[in-house]
Amino acid sequence: MVKINGKEHEAAGKTIAQLVLDGGYKPERVAVELNLDIVPKAKYNDTVVKDGDSVEIVGFVGGG
């Protein structure tokens, strides 16, 4: 199981890019941490999550 924003999901083997899309986020509006480290945008397509990983996807909304 992979923990995504605090909830367990059957997501092992998926890329960060897939998790972002599965979550309904717009890729240009997110920051993603994998096991507390930032995932560089350029690596979303080839960073694969495995069981035990913890992923935090922050989707920004506008206003300031």
Partner: peptide
């Protein structure tokens, strides 16, 4: 402290990277 969501993400990602 930006206004637009994509700019917020850009800044946070660039700084952390």
């Amino acid at each position: 402290a930006f206004d637009k969501a994509d700019q917020k993400a850009m800044l946070v990602n660039t700084v952390l990277e």
